[in-house]
Amino acid sequence: MASVFSGAPPMSGPGYSFKQTPTVASSGNREHSFYPYTDNGGSTLGISGADFTILAGDTRSTSGYNINTRYAPKLFKIGSEGPDGAGARIVLSVVGFAADGDALKERLDTIVKMYKYQHGKPMSVAACAQRLSHILYNKRFFPYYVHAILGGLDEEGRGALYSYDPVGSYEREQCRAAGAAASLIMPFLDNQVNLKNQYMPGSGVGHALEQRVPEPLPKKDVEELVRDAFTSAVERHIEVGDGLQMMIITKDGIQETFNKLKED
């Protein structure tokens, strides 16, 4: 934590040299020098399919150039029935300021649990998604500094994926990358999932070229896409690495996997 041990002398205390010792009391307003946020790095991504949603995130946590730990999960099961996450049907991923991420996760988790206790049925993903937006928006003047992605299955059993900005603006999407390597992964996803800049061969020239129409991808293909996205991001971004945590939500529940990534 660089801000604890800056090495500089206390602001109003004696300096390194006696010449610096303040002789008069400072007047006027003093600026708050405490900054309540930090960036813990890492990246997350989510892709939804016809009957599943995959969320993934690396497990590295950083402070500047330091690696805090090689295993700090960014994926959380929401509304489960016990400490081991049994019975959950919704997954939240958060990346950005980890302390806010943890606080947000715990709030959403209790809300989804309370919903089930009070209404006797699990919360739908759409309802949970809107509730999450409200939580973020309510704190817009002191935001949770996170990019959240929420995944699950909608009422028709199709994969549902929602992505958020820190103040609660959200939309349902096919795929979304967030965090440190979002700018590296997102264009790749645009091209591979939504088939951007992919045209039907021989369909014409210039504007007459016909765009390939995106279709929901099979699970196996998506898993491969996720792995490729992260192995590539690890090569090009210093804050991404160590481990890849994936959660696959299907009608049978949530399947969790963990794979090693490069620790360099």
Partner: peptide
């Protein structure tokens, strides 16, 4: 496990704060 002034938490098999994060880790 660790907790700092921002409320950030993490756990690891080895931990060090301050200068130790650079030199001891």
């Amino acid at each position: 496990a660790s907790a700092d002034l921002l409320g950030t938490t993490f756990a690891s098999s080895t931990l060090a704060t301050g200068f130790g994060a650079h030199l001891a880790q």
